[in-house]
Design a binder for these strands. Structure first.
Lengths: 110, 110
DNA sequence: AGTCTTTTGGTACTAAAGTATGAATCCTAT
DNA sequence: ATAGGATTCATACTTTAGTACCAAAAGACT
């Protein structure tokens, strides 16, 4: 009787342990995949020769800010932002800031 | 000896079964969560009183199209698109189309 | 038929975005 | 020190975007 109880207990332990091993490994796998799909592709940013400041402007655009507002946020003039935006658009091959957003999301750089 | 072999075999089976039970349940849970976070909130669209046509225009904006291009896509004039955009902005409480995109994403309506 | 919403579109305007060009200043690596 | 990229900013200009207002036409509902 006591032997059977020990056996059942052991089986239960094994079941529980492997249940959690299964969930843990699966979770890791999912995290890896979701990370890949949401991670920012810094290599592409470099490959497109987008500068640090230009990237900050791009983020401002994605927040829905106007050129003036981006300038206030980064403590520079609206003229400067216009220059950055113009260069950004040509680097992203976009005609408008909304298209730049779409392309940047597609390239996973924002 | 044969008893021990059977026991080991049983334990292995149990381990494997519960391993897969663990991965299966975990997968289901993850799918559920990822679905919730990417699903479009039709109730909010209705609550904001965004019409069908206005929503189509919103999608055009999210594709990075100009008003003229959206008009060509939907076979209506640019004037009509301007009207829709203007109404859309006030319904979304946005000042610009880029801000409308940001808000719409936040509300999970695009 | 009549009402209500949606969709359409025009005019006239203001505001914002975007281009082109030139130039000064700042950083950085050699 | 200096060459080269990055950042800054201005002027002048063209193009889009956005607002305000009005009004006709189309659909849906009772």
């Amino acid at each position: 009787m006591s032997g059977d109880l020990n056996l059942e207990f052991a089986i239960a332990i094994i079941a529980i342990v492997f249940f959690f091993v299964g969930t843990y490994l699966n979770k890791k796998s999912f995290q890896k995949h979701s990370k890949v799909s949401t991670e920012i592709n810094h290599k592409k940013i470099k490959a497109l020769e987008i500068s640090k400041r230009e990237y900050e402007v791009l983020l401002g655009i994605s927040e829905g800010l106007s050129n003036k507002e981006i300038g206030e946020k980064l403590f520079v003039s609206e003229s400067t932002i216009k220059t950055h935006v113009s260069n950004l658009l040509s680097k992203l091959n976009a005609k408008r800031r909304t298209q730049a957003l779409q392309i940047a999301k597609d390239l996973q750089i924002i």
